[in-house]
Amino acid sequence: MTNNKHLVGALELCDLPFLSLNGLEARVDTGATTSSLHVDNILEFEKMGEAWIKFDIHPDIHDVSQVVQREAKVKSVRRVKSSNATLQKRHVIETDILIAGTQWSIELTLTDRSEMKYLMLLGREAMSGRLIVDPELEFVLGKPA
């Protein structure tokens, strides 16, 4: 820990407790502004007069046959430039992340990352003031089971 910031590598495990997702392998990417999570089958609905979404997720990247459905309140819908420079409409949710025994709120865009190696991308807005990244390292905070 340096200046109250935890050292992390290019890959780390994290939990999204409000979504009941544990041990997600996240790609830590200081080049990405926002964080994103791979989901499928987004369905918009209204709950108590507010916009919500249901979506499917494969919590274990090594076992894509496992699928769970989650729902979350929509914070916003944004146009985001993807890694291949195309503009995409993405739902944004706010949820907590747990890394290194510390829990805080982040914004998470939901998108199809099926062409990417990792389900989750942790962007610099979520890391700001909390994490220091050493891109030579992986799983500084603990290795996957």
Score class of each variant (00 low, 15 high):
residue 71 E to I: 06
residue 93 I to P: 09
residue 98 L to E: 07
residue 62 H to F: 15
residue 89 K to I: 07
residue 93 I to N: 00
residue 62 H to E: 14
residue 93 I to A: 04
residue 69 Q to L: 10
residue 89 K to Q: 03
residue 82 S to Q: 11
residue 65 S to F: 04
residue 65 S to H: 11
residue 96 D to M: 05
residue 64 V to G: 01
residue 93 I to T: 10
residue 96 D to N: 03
residue 75 K to T: 03
residue 76 S to M: 00
residue 78 R to E: 09
residue 78 R to C: 02
residue 91 H to L: 11
residue 98 L to P: 00
residue 80 V to R: 00
residue 75 K to Q: 05
residue 79 R to Q: 10
residue 91 H to E: 14
residue 63 D to W: 03
residue 97 I to M: 09
residue 94 E to Y: 00
residue 75 K to M: 02
residue 88 Q to D: 14
residue 79 R to C: 00
residue 68 V to F: 06
residue 78 R to H: 03
residue 68 V to K: 06
residue 63 D to N: 12
residue 90 R to M: 07
residue 85 A to T: 10
residue 89 K to T: 06
residue 62 H to P: 11
residue 91 H to N: 04
residue 77 V to D: 02
residue 86 T to N: 05
residue 73 K to I: 07
residue 86 T to Q: 15
residue 64 V to H: 00
residue 88 Q to L: 12
residue 76 S to F: 03
residue 72 A to G: 01
residue 74 V to L: 00
residue 83 S to R: 03
residue 62 H to C: 10
residue 94 E to L: 01
residue 65 S to R: 08
residue 70 R to I: 13
residue 87 L to I: 15
residue 75 K to I: 07
residue 70 R to V: 12
residue 87 L to G: 12
residue 95 T to L: 11
residue 92 V to F: 10
residue 76 S to N: 08
residue 78 R to K: 02
residue 89 K to L: 01
residue 80 V to M: 11
residue 90 R to S: 15
residue 95 T to V: 13
residue 65 S to E: 06
residue 92 V to L: 05
residue 73 K to Y: 05
residue 95 T to Y: 13
residue 76 S to C: 05
residue 68 V to N: 10
residue 90 R to F: 14
residue 76 S to Q: 08
residue 81 K to H: 13
residue 82 S to H: 15
residue 63 D to R: 10
residue 90 R to T: 08
residue 97 I to H: 04
residue 68 V to D: 13
residue 84 N to S: 10
residue 96 D to P: 12
residue 94 E to T: 04
residue 87 L to S: 06
residue 95 T to K: 10
residue 74 V to K: 01
residue 79 R to H: 09
residue 67 V to D: 12
residue 80 V to E: 07
residue 63 D to A: 07
residue 80 V to Y: 11
residue 84 N to C: 02
residue 92 V to Q: 09
residue 69 Q to W: 08
residue 69 Q to M: 15
residue 98 L to W: 01
residue 94 E to N: 09
residue 83 S to P: 09
residue 81 K to R: 14
residue 71 E to F: 07
residue 82 S to L: 04
residue 91 H to G: 01
residue 96 D to C: 09
residue 63 D to I: 04
residue 85 A to M: 07
residue 92 V to W: 02
residue 92 V to R: 14
residue 80 V to W: 11
residue 87 L to K: 05
residue 69 Q to E: 11
residue 70 R to G: 01
residue 89 K to F: 08
residue 77 V to Y: 05
residue 66 Q to G: 00
residue 70 R to D: 14
residue 67 V to E: 06
residue 68 V to A: 09
residue 81 K to E: 15
residue 82 S to F: 15
residue 85 A to L: 09
residue 87 L to D: 05
residue 96 D to R: 00
residue 97 I to S: 08
residue 93 I to D: 12
residue 84 N to R: 02
residue 83 S to C: 09
residue 86 T to W: 10
residue 79 R to P: 01
residue 76 S to L: 04
residue 71 E to H: 12
residue 80 V to L: 09
residue 95 T to R: 04
residue 85 A to P: 14
residue 81 K to S: 15
residue 77 V to K: 02
residue 63 D to Q: 12
